[in-house]
Simulated scan of single mutants.
Amino acid sequence: MAMHTPYSLIVTYAEDRQQLIVQAVDPVKVTSIIAGKLEMPILLEAFDFRLDDEFARRLGVAMLNLIALGQPNIEQYMNVTQQPIE
Score class of each variant (00 low, 15 high):
Leu59Gly: 07
Ser8Thr: 00
Leu20Val: 12
Leu51Gln: 13
Pro84Leu: 05
Leu43Met: 05
Phe55Gly: 05
Asn73Val: 11
Asp53Val: 03
Met1Leu: 12
Asp53His: 08
Asn65Leu: 10
Ile74Val: 15
Glu75Phe: 01
Ile34Val: 13
Arg58Met: 13
Gly36Glu: 05
Gln71Cys: 14
Phe55Pro: 03
Asp26Gln: 13
Asp48Thr: 00
Asp16Lys: 15
Glu75Tyr: 02
Glu86Phe: 04
Ala46His: 12
Leu44Ala: 10
Asn73Ile: 10
Leu43Ile: 06
Asp16Thr: 08
Ile74Asp: 12
Arg57Phe: 00
Asp26Met: 09
Asp53Met: 08
Ile34Arg: 00
Pro6Val: 14
Val28Ser: 13
Ile33Lys: 00
Ala24His: 14
Lys29Thr: 09
Ala24Arg: 14
Gly60Pro: 03
Asp26Phe: 03
Gln23Ala: 06
Ala35Gly: 06
Ile85Phe: 03
Phe47Gln: 06
Thr5Glu: 15
Met78Lys: 04
Phe47Trp: 14
Asn73Asp: 14
Val11Cys: 03
Asp53Arg: 10
Pro27Gly: 11
Ile67Asn: 11
Leu66Met: 11
Glu15Lys: 09
Phe55Ile: 09
Glu75Met: 10
Thr5Ser: 15
Met63Val: 14
Val61Phe: 00
Glu45Phe: 07
Lys37Ala: 10
Asn73Cys: 11
Val30Gln: 06
Met40Ala: 05
Met40Glu: 08
Thr12Asn: 09
Asp53Gln: 08
Gly36Pro: 02
Lys29Ser: 13
Thr81Asn: 08
Gln18Ser: 10
Ser32Trp: 01
Glu54Lys: 00
Ser32Gln: 12
Met40His: 05
Gln71Trp: 01
Ala46Trp: 08
Thr12Leu: 07
Ser32Lys: 08
Ile34Lys: 00
Ala35Met: 04
Val30His: 04
Gln23Pro: 00
Tyr13Cys: 06
Arg57Asn: 00
Lys29Pro: 02
Ala62Leu: 09
Ala24Asn: 13
Arg57Val: 01
Ile42Gly: 04
Gln82Ser: 14
Phe47Asp: 06
Pro41Ala: 02
Asp16Tyr: 12
Leu44His: 04
Phe49Gln: 10
Gly36His: 02
Pro6Ala: 15
Glu45Ile: 09
Ala14Asp: 12
Leu51Phe: 07
Gln23Glu: 05
Val22Glu: 10
Phe49Asp: 03
Glu86Arg: 06
Pro72Leu: 09
His4Asn: 15
Glu54Ser: 01
